[in-house]
Design a protein around this nucleic acid. Structure first.
Length: 947
RNA sequence: GGGGCGUUAACUCAGUGGUAGAGUGCCAUCUUCACACGGUGGAAGUCACUGGUUCAAAUCCAGUACGCCCCACCA
């Protein structure tokens, strides 16, 4: 017997170890079963479990467990990502707390430190996934810096280089001066900020006039090489081609015309051109063959070159801005300062203002790689759900730009390229800094890389032996892009790849569609000849209850584990409590343990396809109540099996039925028919990724059908004293345990722990599996599809409901039995139904005696009348009912019915409805009208008799 | 500038052509032998707005308002 009350924390501590021990999570690449495979979106090793993880575990585990039960060889392949910038920044922060920097430690010692940290903390996140029940094949766990994956990365890089799809080039790139690395376009955020627009006068060299330019970055003026105006702008026609004096310097720069760069309507219509520090200016400079003058360095300070006037050299860009503006004011060149809202680029990781700099970097030719990936989606070889994401995908892929893959970090895959110090003499610079362990290597774009799988011993050109490796590492997403096949052993042709590639479903958040999904598609098509997944399911974003993204600074973070295990605010560390401020404002006394099962069930319910989720804890509590209901219903079934030989008839292939349909009671036939429907709905919904529908279906069947009616009806059979019921009792017990057992299997992918706990407690026969997670997925049993008998039971339910309705609205106290109930109908089938089920009706309606009579029977006056399923329910007053209440009740029902009748009439009186609507719709409408009219008539008569 | 999404009960959300649903909350009532994380009954919505298509619109189309997201640009 299971415990009296449902304690998720206790239940969930029991089963994970059992499943692991039994090896149920392991997928065999040599199996004969059809494959089903999901590779996990690898969480950052630095990561701490958040709602996004909880959501993907919920959905991926749901799919994996479902397919496993359906008889697939189900592989959910886990692993973690080294998360280059995130991890390095974190460890550097630790070092800073000790007063050290990575440059003091040097590359080797720093990396050792990161590895030590990874060894210590790297399993945190995977342990947290396990708490949610993730049935991953942990023996196959991978890390993007594993030996095997490094091998795959090198292989991919070298092949792409040899195919000309990777190249090194000097371009303007996004430089993060805090993290000291270049960033891809995707790693940059833009939010509006308020700044200024400085209007500065540049005088013509010949003294004939001046131009006023507007800029948001006056400190870059030392890098100006031209002032650009629109060719059609009449104000400046005469100046085009003339030279201007650049204020604060002794340089002169030309006025040029460029329609793409200058907008006559913005500012003064004239714009300064600084090709080394602005992307538009860079493009303009290229068109006009202008020089590029770099004036800001990688530390975001002004360079100490001759281009920068001595006074400003070495200043930070901010200090320089202030100084320059002051000097311009003094010299009279500053015309005005305007307030201005602009969108500066900031590094996602460090928050630093990105400085565009001219640097040699490694690039992937994305356009070529994108083609087959686009085609795969166009032809439906890979499908996206919700399908609207395909548009976003195409839009980006068709306009894709080359991908900058090098990063000036240490934590990551060092690029497999070397430079010969002899051949590339003069292009390799070692910059020694006092206090830095290693010299910094700067490698000019003119240096010639030697790309190789292993470190070359000699230079293939000159035979020289002085080779240095490219210090840069690869963008984290380069290795993640290989994830679906690198984790399976690529470039080796492994059995795992043969069995499981391409994978079945990629399940992830849509915000990494470009970062990750698109790149996996490109690499998969290129290296494997096939896109890596059949289906891509994008889940929703989990937001807070008012729809904002969760973030620590907003204080609206909801840590899934706080919900799973419960929490008291006083036990939470300050920092975390700050991050979850909103939560503790709403729940000052803390939160009760909800359990992983309830969290999972809730997320499935809330995350309808493609919709963002606003997480409302009240709904989680509601769904925990549902799991409690399952638990309590199970206790009822188990209690009634005690001391009997009735057992669940599950085997490893399905269920055997000890009873034939003709031996079933009406209630049995009804619930088994309903079970069939439920099985069908859940299965179809999961297949279509409509997880909320699937969960909803089980929810309704278990609560509204099984608990509310079948269990209640079963009591009149099980607790009957007469001998005649004995045979029915055995049947009822079997139906109880059979329906419960099947529901548990349907529910297992949603709530794995509690379903296992209960399932294990059920009495089962020979041949039953050892765990619900390897039990077969329920199938519809055509033998038990019994529509007519199910419909009769629905009639019975309607009768009981009608009695209860009268009781409730007429304020008959629940303790008071109704002495006499008349049921009027001329239909023999219904008469028999009421007769045979009268025990149940008496119990559920709290009625002492029932008489079944024909419709012509004279009603006692006064009486209360209700209509259900075409039969008339009559309750003689006999002092039971408050006349006023009853009049009110009838009036209300009459009003509603009258409205219904009018609506139906109006429709049916409309000739075009009758002609043009589908015949079955017209037929339904006629039936409805007839039914409502008959009902209305009866109620009206009853009302008249009340006076 | 381009694209996308949303607006349904007090709250959080389902519902893609045929008389509006759930959870929580609310009102009344009941601690009856699975369950008060419960039972029973009840109240509660002009489905943002305006047009259109249709016999029929929460649902399809167009527009408006408000909210949100993505991409691009921004001197």
């Amino acid at each position: 017997m299971i415990d009296k009350s449902y304690s998720p924390t206790q239940v969930e501590s029991r089963w994970y170890a059992y499943w692991m021990e039994k090896g149920y999570f392991h997928a065999d690449e040599h199996s004969e079963k059809p494959p089903f495979c999901i590779v996990i979106p690898p969480p950052n090793v630095t990561g701490k479990l958040h709602m996004g993880h909880a959501l993907f575990v919920t959905i991926q585990d749901l799919l994996t467990r479902y397919k496993r039960m359906q008889g697939f060889e189900a592989l959910w392949l886990p692993g973690t990502d080294h998360a280059g910038i995130a991890t390095q920044v974190m460890v550097e922060r630790q070092l800073a707390a000790e007063g050290k920097t990575r440059l003091e430690l040097g590359r080797e010692a720093f990396l050792e430190r990161v590895w030590a940290w990874k060894r210590e903390k790297g399993s945190n996140i995977t342990e947290q996934l396990k708490l949610l029940g993730a049935s991953c094949d942990w023996a196959r766990e991978r890390f993007t810096l594993d030996e095997g994956l490094c091998h795959a990365v090198v292989e991919a890089f070298v092949r792409l280089y040899e195919e000309g799809l990777i190249y090194r080039d000097e371009r303007l790139v996004n430089w993060d001066p805090v993290a000291k690395t270049v960033l891809s376009d995707l790693e940059i955020d833009q939010e509006p900020e308020s700044g200024h627009l400085w209007h500065i006068r540049y005088d013509l060299e010949d003294g004939t006039g001046s131009v006023v330019i507007a800029t948001t970055r006056p400190e870059t003026m030392f890098g100006d090489v031209a002032v650009c105006v629109h060719p059609g702008d009449e104000r400046y026609q005469a100046m085009i081609g003339k030279m201007l004096r650049l204020p604060l310097t002794d340089r002169t720069i030309p006025v040029i015309a460029d329609a793409e760069t200058a907008d006559p309507a913005f500012g003064s219509g004239a714009v300064k051109i600084t090709p080394a520090h602005d992307f538009n200016d860079f493009a303009c400079g290229q068109r006009h063959h202008l020089p590029r003058i770099q004036v800001i360095g990688m530390d975001a300070r002004m360079l100490t070159t001759s281009d920068v006037p001595a006074r400003y050299r070495g200043m930070t860009r901010e200090a320089c801005r202030e100084a320059a503006v002051g000097d311009l004011q003094t010299s009279g060149h500053l015309v005005k300062i305007e307030g201005h809202t602009y969108m500066p680029s900031r590094s996602q990781r460090s928050g630093a203002l990105v400085e565009p700099l001219l640097l040699p970097q490694w690039w992937v030719n994305a356009r070529v790689l994108a083609e087959p990936a686009i085609k795969a989606v166009e032809t439906g070889k890979t499908r996206m759900t919700p399908v609207l994401w395909e548009k976003t995908f195409f839009n980006w892929m068709h306009n894709i730009r080359d991908w900058c893959i090098s990063r000036q970090l240490w934590w990551g895959h060092q690029i497999p390229a070397w430079y010969c110090e002899d051949c590339s003499r003069g292009h390799i610079h070692r910059i020694e800094q006092p206090g830095h362990r290693d010299a910094e290597l700067r490698i000019d774009s003119q240096a010639r890389p030697i790309v190789s799988r292993t470190c070359p011993e000699t230079c293939p050109v000159c035979g020289g032996v002085h080779l240095v490796q490219e210090p840069d590492v690869l963008d984290t997403w380069f290795s993640s892009g290989l994830w679906p096949f690198s984790t399976m052993g690529w470039p080796e042709e492994t059995d795992t790849l043969k069995k499981f590639y391409p994978t079945s479903v990629m399940e992830t958040a849509a915000d990494i569609i470009f970062f990750w999904v698109a790149r996996m598609m490109m690499f998969g098509s290129h290296f494997m000849g096939e896109t890596p997944f059949r289906d891509i399911y994008f889940h929703a974003l989990v937001r807070d209850k008012v729809g904002q993204k969760m973030s620590k600074t907003k204080g609206n973070v909801i840590d899934p584990l706080l919900l799973v295990f419960g929490c008291k605010p006083e036990n939470i560390p300050d920092e975390e409590r700050k991050a979850s401020r909103q939560l503790f404002d709403d729940y000052p006394d803390g939160i009760d343990p909800q359990g992983a099962d309830a969290l999972r069930f809730s997320l499935t319910m809330l995350a309808a396809q493609g919709r963002d989720v606003r997480l409302d804890i009240r709904r989680i509590e509601g769904y925990r109540a549902f799991l409690n209901k399952v638990w309590q219903a199970s206790r009822f079934v188990l209690m009634n099996l005690e001391g009997t030989t009735t057992q669940s008839t599950i085997t490893k292939d399905g269920c055997i039925e000890p009873f034939e349909p003709e031996n079933l009671s009406l209630a049995d036939a009804w619930i088994l028919d309903g079970l069939n429907r439920c099985i069908e709905e859940v299965t179809q919904a999961i297949d279509k990724f409509n997880f909320n529908e699937a969960a909803q279906s089980v929810y309704e069947f278990l609560w509204n059908a099984f608990c509310d009616w079948y269990i209640e009806l079963s009591k009149s059979v099980l607790y009957a004293k007469d001998e005649a019921q004995a045979a029915n009792q055995a049947c009822t017990r079997w139906v109880l345990v059979h329906v419960l057992e099947t529901i548990l299997r349907l529910l297992h992918p949603f709530a794995p722990f509690m379903t296992e706990e209960i399932w294990q407690a059920l009495p089962k026969g020979e041949g039953a599996p050892d765990s619900i997670m390897i039990a077969p997925w329920p199938k519809v049993n055509p033998k038990f599809c019994d529509v007519p008998r199910a419909a009769l039971t629905r009639g019975l339910i309607a009768v009981v409901s009608a009695v209860r309705n009268i009781r409730g609205e007429a304020n008959i106290p629940p303790g008071k039995l109704i002495p006499r109930l008349l049921v009027l109908t001329d239909d023999p089938a219904r008469q028999t139904l009421i007769e045979t089920m009268q025990d149940a009706i008496r119990q559920l309606g709290r009625v002492e005696m029932i008489e079944v009579l024909g419709t012509e029977t004279a009603k006692p006056a006064p009486c209360a009348v209700g209509v259900a399923d075409g039969v008339e329910i009559v309750i003689p007053f006999a002092g039971l009912i408050d006349m006023e209440e009853e009049r009110g009740r009838l009036d209300k029902n009459i009003a509603k019915l009258t409205k219904d009748v009018e609506a139906s009439r109006k429709k049916l009186d409309n000739p075009s409805f009758v002609e043009r609507a589908k015949p079955e719709v017209v037929e339904t409408e006629r039936e409805r009208l007839e039914r409502h009219m008959a009902e209305l008539e009866k109620l009206q008569k009853a009302r008249v008799s009340l006076g």
